[in-house]
């Protein structure tokens, strides 16, 4: 029974991690940029959800209608203004640019809204479903379901629609895509936009169960990287599964080994994946990690 509960907690946690990471895998996989500000995007989106709730009384789940489009635009904007000028530069330059962006965003949040923890008050934040002795947190279950739906939806989008195919083409081989007449720059903007929009969605799903403060980006950002590499760049299902795996690892390590070491375990898995199968569990493009982006 204890084990069952641990597994369920792990899966639910994994759903959250998956939700947060799917946006990153899109950006990383297509635009080939490690967005070190990913966590900060999430943080800003969570603040947006918070303010919508406080100023307009909007329920976090309803705010999805706003956060998704707003962050799509934000993503396009960041790609166009920040990344595009340095698109051809070595990947290391892009790292520092997004690192700088992350610094700016988290400290802007600190300046504007100070360090207080903000959470939204909703009646269902600790709602649970009880099945015999097992408890499943409702907001987490909702996040889990959304994550699954997003994975399915994005997969269909990427494989069945024209735009999706273009995105995959660019992700697999930029030069060839260019030669085929695909407007690569536009695709980059769209991909970044979609990635950011997913972050916006994640924020709306997270606010009922968490709270936001300027440095929360650091936590989730790092986990997102682990998940994305585990699952394979640009692979939605990979990100979903990767998130679940990391959630389970954390829960099991925490329950059976030592709560103080639970993060160590998934970092070690991360390192092992990087060393043994850097293209991830379910890779999409060729093993670009060993050839350099």
């Amino acid at each position: 029974m204890y084990l069952m509960q641990v597994l369920i907690s792990g899966l639910m946690l994994g759903g959250i991690y998956a939700m947060v990471s799917m946006g990153l895998t899109m950006i990383f996989g297509v635009v080939r940029v490690i967005n070190f500000a990913h966590g900060e995007f999430l943080m800003i989106a969570m603040y947006l959800v918070y303010w919508l709730n406080v100023l307009l009384g909007m329920d976090p789940y309803v705010s999805i209608l706003i956060t998704v489009p707003v962050f799509f635009v934000f993503g396009v904007f960041v790609q166009r203004i920040l990344i595009q000028p340095i698109q051809e530069s070595p990947a290391t330059i892009k790292i520092f640019s997004t690192l700088g962006l992350g610094l700016v965003l988290s400290n802007l949040a600190l300046m504007l809204w100070d360090a207080d923890y903000r959470s939204v008050k909703v009646s269902y934040s600790t709602a649970v479903i009880n099945i015999s002795e097992l408890s499943i947190s409702v907001p987490r279950l909702i996040a889990f379901i959304f994550a699954l739906l997003v994975a399915v939806f994005m997969y269909s989008f990427l494989t069945k629609t024209d735009l999706g195919k273009q995105i995959r083409a660019v992700s697999q081989n930029r030069q060839a895509a260019l030669l085929m007449g695909i407007n690569v720059r536009k695709i980059y903007m769209i991909a970044f936009g979609i990635g950011s929009a997913l972050v916006g969605l994640a924020a709306s799903l997270l606010m009922p169960m968490y709270f936001v403060y300027p440095s929360i980006g650091l936590l989730f950002g790092l986990i997102a990287f682990v998940v994305v590499v585990l699952g394979g760049l640009g692979n939605m299902y990979g990100a979903f599964l990767g998130g679940l795996i990391i959630g389970l690892v954390e829960a099991i390590a925490g329950a059976y080994i030592d709560p103080a070491l639970k993060e160590v375990f998934y970092f070690i898995i991360f390192i092992l994946i990087l060393l043994l199968k850097p293209s991830g569990l379910i890779s999409m493009g060729r093993g670009s990690e060993e050839v350099g982006l």
């Binding site: 990947a91 160590v264 970092f267 070690i268 991360f270 990690e289 060993e290 982006l293």
Partner: peptide, 17 residues
């Protein structure tokens, strides 16, 4: 063996560990 950003991520992970 890892190039570019992947090497970077690995170093990050080691430092965190």
């Amino acid at each position: 063996r890892l190039r570019g950003p992947f090497f970077t991520l690995a170093t990050l992970a080691f430092a965190e560990v």
